[in-house]
Write a protein that binds this DNA or RNA. Structure first.
Lengths: 235, 235
DNA sequence: CGACACCTTGATAGTGCTCAATCGGCGTGG
DNA sequence: CCACGCCGATTGAGCACTATCAAGGTGTCG
């Protein structure tokens, strides 16, 4: 059987595309790993639903390209986006211990993903102390991110939330090398930002206009440009 | 060395006090385990700070008696309570993989806790598949709880939040056998509820009055009484 | 009895929502 | 190549939910 490895949050320094899943016969060269991984790669269009809250699935994914998001729906249609997933992020990792996911996942843009069988992956991870520890770090990190979002939603103004939200994504995008100058691709629409931060799209639009007017940042046509990182940090 | 075990969320059916940490030489009788555990028990007054966000600690606790809460503070004094901890809950479990905790923990009432050394505990857990799996379930569960809270804060009204908040605690209190008739002890003040749900104490008070007027529940002097569980569930 | 913490109530203000109309970009199909 | 339709962004007016400020009440504990 092939060696199969999944990168929880720690980046794989030797990979050209950092922090990616690798699916390989040997540990040595990450490039060949990525090549091998291609066997299990799939491409989906924007809007593809990976999981529906409460439904069972055997597959765990890792995002190779594009954006996705985890979300929950209320019976009356209200939506809360829990987090955005970027290339390198694992999708549905909780399936390793449970049959059902407590959230849904959807592609925000066209995406390509690597697919893993959850049982194979679980068996593999449980056999290696290193992987177990990385899994534990992964849990801690995602838990910490959720708690951070709780703080944002509970105790910060709309203005502060948006500033922090953008900063957070900027950091993650930068870590993946998506930054060109002071600009980077930014897929979420105002509606998505609103659903992530507990606001309405209209209000998000107004605040974004404020920030643009204040010379802080510009967000247009899927491109985010930071004009004044210092001002943004101060909020 | 003694056998040392910590119950992640699953209750230990044979224990008189369910879902408690056990610290024992043998697996058989849970009662003697609890007796043995007493060696490592400590009592603290309300307000005791177990962790301060960002500070290191070697100790992991499990709550034996009383209430505690996890929270975060903003520089300007705003506070967000992340979750409440009840008897049987583990405090600071993330310390098994990291040196610092991303939140603070404080006792809400007088409490008694069992103390574990994080390294001893980590070594012990990593050696047993069963414990690893239970730890994984624990992460998933707490992550799911955080996501649920994000949904509440982002997309539900104050009225809905409070109803859900109380229902959640009722369920947990009931699972631990704290229910007497339709009443149970309820330590959080309106201020704590407010800080947990991103509201002000004044507004929490008004909504609680509404609920009392509607014949749904009464919350007074640390005692919660549910008059109409069905109405509460419908919200 | 006083101090203190917590709850209650009232009046007022503000943040963010709702509703509605307009505009622009982009993909589709004729 | 242009018309159409759709989705997302923008703007305005008005309102609702929740916050803020302030005062008074009640219980508990030393």
């Amino acid at each position: 059987m092939q060696r199969l490895e999944i990168n929880l949050p720690g980046p794989c320094a030797s990979c050209p595309l950092r922090s990616f899943a690798v699916y390989c016969d040997d540990r040595e060269g990450c490039e060949s790993d990525i090549e091998a991984m291609r066997n299990d790669r799939r491409i989906y269009r924007a809007g593809k639903i990976f999981y529906r809250e409460g439904e069972a699935s055997d597959e765990v994914y890792q995002l190779f390209n594009g954006w996705a998001y985890r979300f929950k729906l209320l019976p009356d249609g209200r939506r809360q986006i829990l987090s955005f997933l970027l290339p390198g992020d694992t999708i549905g990792f909780e399936l390793l211990n449970q049959d059902r996911l407590p959230y849904s996942v959807r592609a925000l843009t066209p995406v390509s993903v690597c697919v893993f069988n959850k049982d194979t992956l679980a068996g593999h991870i449980l056999q290696q102390q290193t992987l177990i520890k990385r899994a534990a770090s992964f849990w801690s990190a995602s838990s910490a991110a959720s708690d951070q979002r709780i703080l944002d939603l509970g105790r910060r103004s709309a203005y502060e939330r948006i500033a922090r939200f953008i900063q957070d994504l900027v950091q993650r995008l930068r870590a993946r090398g998506f930054e060109h100058g002071d600009s980077m691709p930014f897929a979420p629409s105002q509606m998505h930002i609103a659903d992530a931060l507990g606001l309405t799209p209209v209000h998000v639009g107004r605040i974004l206009r404020q920030m643009r007017a204040g010379g802080i940042l510009t967000l247009k046509h899927g491109l985010l440009t930071i004009h004044d990182p210092e001002l943004l940090r101060q909020i």
